[in-house]
């Protein structure tokens, strides 16, 4: 009975995304979607024909209100994720995002060859197996975190003058640095497009990895699990950016 399935590689279940990371991820995704929708509305409100008096409706007001509410969620959630980058498990660690070793760049190159150029090695198709983020994903998330920062700076910079709370007021220097609200607003608007394009590519790649590797990529952000073949695990062929344990050569050898 027990050796019935032996010829099929056994999968090991790895707890990759801890609950806080998952909560962070979905709050973040939700907040960003809401911010994009309300942001679009704020930048170009739809033409309304209304017989009501202005005093009886508050449409732009609500869109802005939701934008600012989502902005606060987004901001504190982001701060939380930064904190978790220091106390969470190794897949959540900041070293997954910021290259601190040559290995990181080698892995980016390897991912590029395998998943984008789809190069073969000795006529064999290759997989790039990683448990946490692969290095390419890591550095793109790092850029995304920078975009979060830009959006928070310009957003709260604009908000500073509308708010009486000290927190947004801490950002009052941003429009001053940029020479005024007009440019601040434009930068805020432009960088929105980064998020839109990021989201499209991101979701596509999640599906891609699931499709090609079949290791539970998509659901990993829900349950936290990814699966890795026992022999890959034992031979240490999976990748985690930055730690020194694996040699560069092995990545491409696989």
């Amino acid at each position: 009975m027990a050796n019935k399935y032996l010829h099929i590689p056994r999968l090991r279940r790895v707890y990759v995304w801890e609950l806080p990371v998952r909560i962070y991820h979905w709050l973040n995704a939700l907040a960003i979607v809401v911010l994009i929708i309300t942001g679009f509305y704020i930048s170009n409100p739809v033409a309304l024909l209304s017989s009501k008096d202005a005093s009886q409706q508050y449409i732009m007001g609500w869109f802005r209100y939701i934008h600012f509410a989502a902005a606060y969620i987004f901001f504190f959630n982001f701060l939380f994720r930064l904190y978790w980058g220091f106390v969470g498990n190794k897949y959540a660690n900041w070293k997954q995002f910021i290259p601190t070793s040559k290995r990181f760049f080698h892995e980016i190159w390897a991912v590029f060859k395998i998943d984008i150029l789809m190069l073969k090695k000795n006529g064999k198709e290759q997989e790039h197996l990683s448990i946490g983020h692969n290095a390419m994903a890591g550095i793109i998330y790092f850029m995304t975190f920078l975009a979060f920062l830009v959006q928070c700076l310009t957003g709260f910079g604009l908000y500073a003058r509308m708010s009486s709370w000290w927190l947004p007021k801490l950002f009052a220097w941003v429009p001053v640095l940029l020479g005024g609200d007009i440019l601040t607003r434009k930068i805020h608007h432009w960088s929105m497009w980064y998020f839109i394009i990021f989201t499209v590519i991101h979701v596509y790649l999640v599906f891609y990895h699931d499709y090609v590797e079949g290791r539970g990529e998509t659901s990993s952000m829900v349950g936290g699990w990814k699966f890795i073949e026992e022999d890959v695990f034992e031979k240490n062929l999976h990748q985690t950016p930055n730690p020194e344990k694996t040699e560069v050569e092995e990545i491409t050898k696989h």
Partner: peptide, 11 residues
């Protein structure tokens, strides 16, 4: 401003 908040705009 009340028209702005209400979402009523000159097109």
């Amino acid at each position: 401003r009340p028209f702005y908040d209400a979402g009523l705009f000159v097109e």
